[in-house]
Simulated scan of single mutants.
Amino acid sequence: MSGTVVAPGDNVKLHCFSRIKFEAFILTKEDAPRFTQRQSTTSQDNGQQTTFHMDRVTSTQAGTYRCFGAFDTNPEVWSHPSDPLQLEVRGSAGWSVALVNQVRLSLAGLVLLALVVVLAEACYSHKRSFHGLR
Rank of each mutant, 00 (worst) to 15 (best):
M1Q: 12
G9E: 00
G9F: 03
G9Q: 04
D10G: 04
N11G: 09
V12A: 04
V12K: 08
V12S: 04
H15Q: 13
H15V: 13
S18M: 02
S18R: 11
S18H: 12
R19S: 15
A24R: 05
F25Q: 02
T28V: 11
D31C: 10
P33Y: 05
F35H: 01
Q37Y: 03
R38L: 08
S40Q: 06
T42A: 02
T42C: 06
T42Q: 11
T42V: 06
S43I: 01
D45S: 10
Q48D: 04
Q49C: 05
Q49I: 07
F52G: 02
F52D: 03
V57L: 09
A62M: 10
A70S: 11
F71H: 06
E76A: 08
V77W: 02
S79F: 03
H80D: 15
P81L: 03
D83I: 05
L85S: 00
L85A: 03
L87C: 01
G94P: 01
W95R: 14
A98T: 07
V100A: 13
N101D: 12
Q102V: 07
V103C: 15
S106P: 01
A108N: 14
A108K: 09
G109N: 12
G109R: 07
G109V: 02
V111L: 09
V111A: 13
L113I: 13
A114Q: 05
V116W: 14
V117A: 15
V118M: 06
A122K: 06
H126V: 14
F130Q: 15
L133Y: 11
L133V: 08
